[in-house]
Simulated assay, not measured.
Amino acid sequence: MTTVTRPSPDAATPRRPAKSRAAGLVASGVVLLALCLCSLAFGVRSVSIEDVLAVAGGQVDTVSQAAVSARIPRTVLAVLIGAALALSGAAMQAVTRNPLADPGILGVSGGAALAVVVGLAFFGLATPYALITVAIVGAAVAAVFVYAVGSLGRGGATPLKLALAGAAISAAFASVTSAVLLPRADVMEAFRFWQIGGVGGATWDRIGIVAPVLAVGALIVFLTARGMDSLALGDDVAAGLGEDVARTRLVASTGAVVLCGAATAVAGPIAFVGLVIPHLCRLLVGPDQRWVLPFTAVLGAALLVAADVVGRLIARPEEIEVGIVTALIGAPVFIWIVRKQRVREL
């Protein structure tokens, strides 16, 4: 009887010892912790790292304590949103085998944003749970629509066609969103900065509502890690290894959509986090999703926290929203990926 051996997801790249990967993950966590301390320290009123640490022990003046306390929910929200968007991008890239997949580039964030604005303007939705729900539905509809458009013509859903379809549909979504908002001054004022993408309005109530939803989405993505490794071998090989290709794609895509929709509902459409971080993580640890996903979550959180800190520092006493900073980082990386990989499949 012939035994079919499942190929290792690391077969195409030099294998890295598990100890070195674990050490890298710990180092990434230390970097994230350091960035979180910087996020608590820097702002309109800077606080020394010593005072930040003293606040944790309750041994600092009231002014410093107030400044640090106000920044804690903002930092926590940046960690959650960064990890969610990065995981969503990693899952999209694995499911579509598309190196250009990203919630922003493929129009998924734009669909979620449009759904939120329509819900506010026409249906009077105001509760956070309602907005998160419509955002997830909008993200799912946008994902299906972009994939359908990108699949038209010869060759099916190639990476380049999906990227072009996503860019065109994202522009259309943004135009419709602006058209809905412009005549409605009350909604426009409330969501003027939300459209750009940011974490400045973080509160513990918002975090408490969105965190469980993001946790469910992340759990779905992590549970499909092994299946996504099989998809990287090609549909025929994956099916031959006993993988239910359609089910794996559906479940992983559901997790990606939940993460993207919930993150967009709370922080607005933030692009390029889901593009940059998964590529960096695959360079660090290889293509094994069981390692890529934890690294992606940690480094995605680190990137968004860093972008938030940079946005606060370079325009003091004003702020630049993280959506602008991540776009400045991600656009050159997007161009590099297109030129370097010639948009081949993963």
Score class of each variant (00 low, 15 high):
A27V: 12
A18I: 15
P9A: 02
F272D: 11
L33H: 00
E319T: 14
L87V: 00
L182P: 05
L181W: 03
H279W: 01
Q341C: 09
L125H: 07
G156Q: 12
V221L: 03
A218H: 04
V221R: 00
V4T: 15
I136G: 00
I196T: 08
R97T: 10
G240W: 02
L283A: 13
F334M: 07
G150M: 06
A256K: 02
L100H: 13
M1T: 15
T62S: 14
L303K: 10
G240C: 10
V221W: 01
A67H: 14
G227N: 10
A218S: 10
I196G: 01
Q195I: 06
A252F: 10
Y129I: 15
G242I: 07
V30P: 07
T13C: 02
T254C: 15
A90P: 05
V276F: 05
T3H: 14
R97N: 15
R192V: 14
L114S: 11
Y147W: 03
R16E: 08
P14Y: 00
V146L: 01
L259F: 11
R15A: 15
P9R: 05
L33G: 15
T158N: 14
V176N: 12
A126L: 05
V273Y: 12
E189N: 14
D235N: 04
S175K: 05
Y147G: 11
A307C: 12
L40W: 13
P212K: 13
A142N: 06
V149A: 07
L152W: 03
A172D: 09
A327Q: 06
H279Y: 03
S46E: 08
A130P: 04
Q195C: 13
P294Q: 10
V257T: 10
L328M: 14
T75R: 05
G255W: 09
E345I: 11
R154S: 15
G119E: 06
P317Y: 03
S39T: 08
G110L: 07
I335M: 14
I270Y: 07
E319A: 13
G311F: 08
L33D: 02
E321L: 08
D102W: 12
A34Y: 00
A135R: 01
T2P: 15
G138S: 15
L250P: 09
A148G: 12
R339I: 01
F123W: 15
R154M: 06
L37T: 04
D10G: 03
L152N: 09
A148F: 03
